[in-house]
Amino acid sequence: MYRGFERLNVVFTYGVITLTVCVLALNLTTFFKDFSRIETVNLDFKGFSGFIKNSSRYPSLRVDGSHETAFLTLDAEADFQSMFNWNVKQLFVSVVVEYVSPMHARNEVVVWDKIIVREGNALINTNKGSRYMHWDDGTGLRGLKANWRLKWNVIRNVGPMADYQSPAYEIEFPKEYSH
């Protein structure tokens, strides 16, 4: 019985140490990989295929008060294939619109995102329109000059997570409601 305990203990300790060394080695081989540069094929703001309007008429959407919403179309083709290695589990790529509004000094709204888990799917193209409506918290969208950029979050199989972003590109919202 006693011997059994002793042996289990030694095997367990040895196992934990071996796994820890493997994890550290795995992280060491991928630690200096540069995730901050993407291969950009085309980054272009196509305009507002949809609309910009005041959405206070839709109380069912559970927003508080009067809000403007827009639907924008971007054409972002970017290549994330070079980022994959044996310690990358997932890339989370999103298109973020950043702007200043009368009510808020800083607004950040995700209008498109994608989960990439395979190198083969790492060429993104947003030209089907954005995934989410752009809701402003208030009414600051008409004639707004905003920035948009790509952000990506690298999740390793094991190890630290990190966030990266592209330079900002300017867009200008329409001056009038479209409906």
Binding site: M103, E108, N153
Partner: peptide, 9 residues
């Protein structure tokens, strides 16, 4: 994950 954010002055 954070989807939207509004920060006042």
């Amino acid at each position: 994950r954070v989807l939207k954010l509004h920060e006042r002055d």
